[in-house]
Design a protein around this nucleic acid. Structure first.
Lengths: 333, 333
DNA sequence: CTGAAAGCGCTAACAA
DNA sequence: TTGTTAGCGCTTTCAG
C-alpha cells in the first residue's frame, strides 16, 4: 500500500507537506501541489480512509436499505441516489432486507459500526425496536414506506391518491363490479392504498360491488391466485385495480394465460411502471410513481442536512404525486 | 466514545489486557475476561472499526462495480451477490460507472481506500490504466465482461455460443435474409457475440444475406434506429437477431409501433430475459443468460479465496452457458 | 498470565 | 511556504 510517507520520500519532502498538498491546503505552493499530485497519481496512491476516519473525519458512505434490489422501484432508487451522492462525493452502500426485520437490524448495526454518514431506508413492515434505538444516533431518513417507530423523516408517495385515481378512472369508465388486489393493511403503504380504493368507491356515490384481495407479502403468485379466485366468482368483477408492483406481473400473466380479452371481458389498472407493461396485451393502464424524482429529492435533502449538520430529527414529509398512464387495458365493461 | 483505555482504567489493568480479553485471547484468565466483558457491556463499549482497520484487519465490505443498476442484468447480480455475501458475513457496496472509465477509476480508488476486502466488477469498455494498477493490489474479479488489462480472473457467459444458438435457430427456421443488431466489436463481449452470429451463418453452409448493425453504446434508441434502417432496405431482412439487452427493448418497441406482424413479416430473437419479454406480441424468443447463477458462483468462489487467502492472481475463467427460450416471435419466413 | 511500548496512516498544532 | 511532532484507538510484538 502506497502511503503519504512513500510519496514524501520519493519527493524528498515531509509527509505533512504531501498531506497538505493533497488536501489542497492554501499554504502550499502551486508548484509543489503539481509535483505531489503527479507523484501520487504515478504511484497509485489512495488515501487510507480508516486512518482518516480515526482522525475524526466522517466517512462518505451512505447506507441504502431496501427490500429487494431486483424490484425496479428499488433499483431505480438506488440508481438515482447513487448519482446524486456521487456528485457530492458520497458513496452508496447497498443492503437488502428481504423484508425481514432481523436482516434489517443486522444491516443497521453493520452500517453504523463502519461509521456511515447516514442511512436511507425503505423500512420493513415491523422494524425491530433495537433498529429504532440505533437509528436514533445516526442521521437517517425513510423512503417510500414509513415506520413511525423509526422517526418522522420521510420521503414518500401519495399512495392513497394513487389508488384513488386508478379506481376513479375505472368507475368513470362505467364499471360496477370492481376488485382490488394489493398488500395488507399492516404496512402503512398498503393501508393507504386500499383506503384510496375505498374512498374512490364511496365518493363515486354509485352502487358498486367490491372485492378486496389483500395478501402479504405481495408477490406475483398472490396476484395470480387472486385473479383465479375472482374469476371463479358467480358475479365476476369486470375490472381489476392493483395496488402493489409485485402483484401486477402475476395478475397480468394469469389474465394472459386465461386468454381473457382485455378490456372487453376485463379491465385492468396496474401499479408502478415496469418496462414491459406497455407490451402487454393492448398496453397496461397503470399508475406511474415518480420514484426516480423522489429518490433524487430525498438524496439532495439528505446530503444538504448531512453537510450542514442540519437537524434530521425534526419531522418532515415530502409527498410526491402519482400519475395515471392510460393505455389500452381499460375501457367500458 | 468509550475506548479500551477507559475500561482498562476503571478495571485498573492495562489496555492490552482489555484488548486481549475482548478478543478472547487464550492467554487471558477466564475471570479477567468475565470482568472485562462485564465492564465493557456496562460502559456501552463499541470497538472502533476505523482503528481496527488501520491495524490491517480487513473490512467485511466487498465492492460491486456495475454500469447501471437499473439494468436487470446487474440488479440480478447485485441481489445474488448480496445474498451470497450476507451468509458469509460480508456486506456489499454498490458503485455505478455509467460505462465511464473515469467514474470507474474513481470508484476503485474509493473502494480501496476504505480497505474493501475485494472488488467484483463489470469493467467498462476501456478501463483506465490507473484502475489496473490499483486493482493489482486488491483482490478482484471480473464479471460478465472481461478487460484483459484488469487481470485474468473472470466469470462470464459464453457470448459467442449465445448468438450462435439464436442465429442457428433462425437459420433452421428457413430464413435467408438475416440482420444482426448489437454492440460494437470494441467490447470483448460485443465481439464475441457478432462472432457467434457470423460463425452460425458460415457453418450453415447456406447462401444467406446478412446485415450487421453495430452501435455503441448499446441503447434502446440505437435498436429503434437500426430497425428503421433495416426496414427501409430494398430486400429487407426477414429475421432480426439481437445481441444486446439494451437494444432489445428499442427493437421490439419499434416493431410494435410499425405494427409488423410477428413472426409472419419478421422474426425476432431477443437478448437477455427481461420481465415483459413474454408479454410482447406472441412472446419474444430470446437467449436467457444464467446471470443469477453466475453471480452466485462468482460470489462463492470469491469468498472462498478471500477467506483462505487463496491466490486471486492465477488466471481463471468460469463460463456459463446460455439457453435459448423459444416463444412465438420466431417462425418460417 | 499480564504489562509496556511500538506503531498502523493520517491530520493538525506548533515550530521554523 | 514547509518541517516536526504528537497523537487518534487498536493490535501486536517483546518483556516481564
Amino acid at each position: 500500500m502506497v502511503t503519504i510517507k512513500d510519496i514524501a520520500a520519493t519527493l524528498q519532502v515531509s509527509p505533512s507537506t504531501v498531506g497538505r498538498a493533497l488536501a489542497d491546503d492554501r499554504r502550499i505552493s502551486a508548484e509543489m501541489k503539481r509535483k505531489v499530485n503527479e507523484a501520487a497519481a504515478h504511484a497509485g496512491y489512495v488515501a487510507n480512509r480508516a486512518a482518516r476516519m480515526m482522525r475524526g473525519v466522517q466517512s462518505n458512505l451512505v447506507g441504502l436499505i431496501v427490500p429487494d434490489i431486483r424490484n425496479s422501484f428499488y433499483s431505480t432508487i438506488a440508481h438515482a441516489l447513487s448519482q446524486c451522492l456521487l456528485s457530492a462525493n458520497y458513496q452508496l452502500t447497498l443492503c437488502e432486507t428481504d423484508d425481514d426485520r432481523m436482516h434489517e437490524l443486522r444491516h443497521i448495526k453493520e452500517l453504523t459500526s463502519v461509521n456511515v454518514a447516514g442511512i436511507i431506508l425503505v423500512p420493513s413492515a415491523k422494524p425491530h425496536p433495537d433498529s429504532a434505538r440505533i437509528l436514533k444516533m445516526t442521521p437517517h431518513i425513510q423512503l417510500l414506506r414509513r415506520a413511525p417507530l423509526l422517526g418522522d423523516q420521510w420521503f414518500g408517495i401519495d399512495d392513497r391518491r394513487a389508488l384513488y385515481e386508478s379506481t376513479e378512472h375505472i368507475i368513470n369508465a362505467g364499471h360496477k363490479r370492481i376488485a382490488y388486489i394489493g398488500g395488507t393493511e399492516e404496512l402503512p403503504t398498503g393501508a393507504a392504498r386500499v383506503q384510496g380504493f375505498r374512498d374512490a368507491v364511496k365518493s363515486s356515490g354509485q352502487a358498486i360491488t367490491v372485492h378486496e384481495e389483500l395478501g402479504a407479502p405481495s408477490s406475483p403468485e398472490f396476484g395470480r391466485e387472486a385473479v383465479r379466485r375472482l374469476l371463479s366468482l358467480k358475479d365476476r368483477p369486470t375490472a381489476l385495480v392493483i395496488g402493489a408492483v409485485q402483484n401486477t406481473s402475476g395478475v397480468i400473466d394469469e389474465i394472459q394465460e386465461k386468454a381473457l380479452s382485455v378490456p372487453r371481458e376485463i379491465s385492468v389498472v396496474g401499479f408502478g411502471d415496469e418496462l414491459g407493461y406497455r407490451w402487454w396485451g393492448p398496453g397496461l393502464t397503470t399508475v406511474q410513481l415518480p420514484v426516480s424524482e423522489l429518490a433524487t429529492a430525498c438524496g439532495l435533502w439528505f446530503l444538504h442536512h448531512l453537510q450542514n449538520k442540519g437537524d434530521l430529527s425534526k419531522p418532515y414529509s415530502f409527498i410526491s404525486p402519482p400519475q395515471l398512464v392510460i393505455r389500452g387495458s381499460t375501457g367500458a365493461p
